[in-house]
Design a binder for these strands. Structure first.
Lengths: 231, 231
DNA sequence: ATTATTTGTAAAGCCCCTTTACAAAAAGTA
DNA sequence: TACTTTTTGTAAAGGGGCTTTACAAATAAT
């Protein structure tokens, strides 16, 4: 199996050397850069599995690198490294920008652990189980509850995703209300029925952007997901 | 394997005959009674796996039977059967009193399905996987998120249960904050740390009823679940 | 002794699902 | 056809559970 590639930005030479070395012992392939600019150049040329970015760097700092990376790649996991002195408000910033982060000083084990979590997560995503449903201009990733339409990502909630998945699995097929309810809600009664209607309404808003796809109502019976340019 | 016993209350003789017959064909052992009183007498003598109760019965009705059953048995699954004419407000009543319910006319398949759901659920509960943690006067069922203390049941939320389970699995052992956070929250930072403190506070309220059990704080380190009369 | 950090805990905030409320559409009935 | 009932659409309210905040109290550090 091919080694996983890690992009590592860190301006402290000593720490960088140690970390890089440790990661390589774990069979990772590490490209280290001491500043943000070089980092971005490298990222443009190669595909990395995980990015590990120190926040405090002269010139282009970690935040900026991350921001820039995200413009071209919405998925690479980014792990921030930051100095310990940060207080709550700063931590908050970290939390929103990164997939995960570590506060220095960190142990190599911690870092390796986090990297491995992301890699194994992606393995799943890249291999067999990756089921992506497509219809019209929409793509739906039921594992991650994400619908993409022309680069516009929408995160779904659990129930929205479960319902949508059920529709995709039965595209262009009439689904009776009872059927949907027992499949998605596990129970079928008047109240869950109303809940279903609410969710139908939500999914319709989602599909409003493309009129070749829609959920049709069969009054008194159920619903049907229709893709005009069917597969 | 022994047949599962069903207590069936139904005053309509024809329907009762049909239903009983169908259930017996599914290898269930069915005791049918045409009124609530007999039903309760039977319940007092035998152990049943599932109760199927018609609501509308002369004398003691289904609701009353259920109520009475619940006084001695907190766990038997109860399925209500009710006439179709019910409107929302009535359904509401059903929902709260029963584990599940069916609106007449129902198909036998539906009933069988529901019965089987409960039986298989209980199978799990009765067999191997049933792990019940005990400490002091408390019992904790991590499958069902329930803590029992002298017949007083407390339902826990997911996180409460996950945290409590982690404590039980490591009783009388010091658990470091980071350790708990990565085990129960999957991530460890300042904010989740505060969340942990809030949950510790909740669990302590739970244990307030028995002072031989408590969660101790190791300042700057973590927590420990202590059972004075340890196992 | 004084200051900083960590912990306890009630309360606020937020997210998601359910439930309500009411309008609109469709079906049933006379 | 006119009127009533049922079903559906959808915004908004409600409620539960987890996180976050806020502030007091306890503990540790200087």
């Amino acid at each position: 199996m091919k080694a996983h590639r890690i992009l590592y930005a860190e301006d402290d030479a000593t720490l960088a050397f140690l970390t890089k070395d440790s990661l390589e012992q774990q069979q990772f392939e590490v490209d280290h850069f001491a500043n943000g600019r070089e980092c971005l150049e490298a990222f443009a040329k190669k595909k990395y599995d995980v990015c590990v970015l120190d926040i405090m760097m002269p010139g282009v700092d970690g935040f900026a690198v991350a921001e820039s990376i995200r413009k071209t790649d919405h998925d690479v996991p980014i792990i921030f490294l930051s100095a310990k002195t940060l207080k709550e408000d700063k931590l908050k910033g970290l939390r929103i920008g990164a997939d995960d982060y570590l506060v220095k000083p960190f142990s190599i084990e911690e870092l390796v652990l986090k990297i491995e979590i992301f890699i194994s997560r992606n393995k799943k995503t890249n291999k067999a189980e990756r089921k992506i449903f497509t219809t019209g201009s929409f793509q739906f990733d039921p594992e991650n509850f994400i619908v993409t339409n022309n680069d516009k990502k929408t995160e779904l909630t659990q129930r929205e995703a479960a319902l949508l998945q059920y529709f995709f699995e039965n595209k262009n097929t009439v689904l009776k209300r009872e059927q949907i309810l027992s499949a998605v809600w596990g129970q079928d009664d008047y109240f869950f029925g109303r809940s279903l209607d609410v969710f139908i309404s939500k999914l319709r808003k989602l599909f409003a952007a493309d009129d070749s796809v829609k959920i049709e109502t069969l009054h008194g019976i159920g619903f049907k997901l229709v893709d005009r340019n069917a597969d």
